[in-house]
Computed example of a mutant assay.
Amino acid sequence: MKDEKETMKNTKPVLLELREGQVENYFKAMYDHFGGELKSNSYYLKKGTTLVHGTAIQLTEGIEFSIIDAIHSEALKMVRIPDNNPDYYHLVIIHTGEYTQTFEQELLKLEANSTKGIFIYNGMFPLEAEFPANSPYKAITFKFQKSCLEDIIPEAAAMLKTMYPTDEGLAYHIPTTNEVNQLVDDILRYQKGIYGAKAMIKARAFEALVITMKIMEQMTDDELHGLHIDDYNRLMRIKKHLLDSLTDTINVEAIAEEFAISVSKLNRDFKALFDMTIYKFYTRAKMDEAYRRLQTGNYSVAEVGYDLGYSSLPKFSEMFKKVKGINPSDVVAL
Rank of each mutant, 00 (worst) to 15 (best):
A157N: 13
K146W: 04
T176Y: 10
A156L: 07
I153R: 07
P132R: 14
N181S: 11
P136S: 08
N113G: 08
P154A: 09
A129M: 14
S147M: 09
I153F: 15
I153K: 09
H173A: 09
T162K: 12
A112V: 01
L149N: 02
F142C: 04
F131Q: 03
L127Y: 07
A139T: 04
N122H: 05
S114K: 12
N134E: 13
T162Q: 05
L170N: 05
N122P: 02
F144H: 07
L127T: 05
I120M: 13
F142E: 01
A112G: 00
I118N: 03
N134H: 08
E128W: 06
N181E: 08
T115G: 10
S114V: 11
L127W: 04
K143L: 06
E128H: 12
K138G: 02
I153H: 06
Y137H: 01
Y121T: 03
A112Q: 02
E128S: 13
P132D: 06
A129Q: 12
L149A: 09
L160N: 00
H173S: 13
G123I: 13
T166M: 02
I140A: 02
K143C: 00
S147D: 13
T177L: 15
A157D: 12
F144T: 05
I174A: 09
I120R: 04
P126W: 01
Q182C: 03
E155F: 09
A156D: 10
E168I: 12
Y137E: 01
D151N: 14
T166D: 12
P165V: 08
N113R: 09
M163Y: 02
F142L: 01
I153M: 14
A133R: 09
I174Q: 03
I174G: 11
P154Q: 07
L149D: 00
Q182A: 10
P132Y: 08
C148Y: 06
E111H: 08
A157T: 13
N113M: 10
I174E: 02
Y121K: 05
Y137F: 12
I118S: 05
P126F: 08
F131C: 04
A139L: 01
K116S: 10
S114W: 09
N134C: 09
L160W: 10
G169D: 01
T176E: 06
A139R: 00
P165R: 02
K116D: 08
D167K: 14
Y172E: 02
P175Q: 10
N113E: 11
I140L: 04
G117M: 00
N181K: 14
P165Y: 06
E128D: 06
I118Q: 01
T141P: 01
N178E: 11
E155V: 08
V180C: 09
Y172R: 01
Y137T: 02
S135K: 14
M163V: 07
D167C: 07
K116I: 09
F125R: 11
A171C: 08
A139D: 00
A157W: 07
S135W: 03
D167W: 13
T141N: 10
K116C: 00
A157K: 15
N178D: 03
N122F: 07
T176R: 10
N178Q: 09
S147P: 03
F131K: 03
E150Y: 10
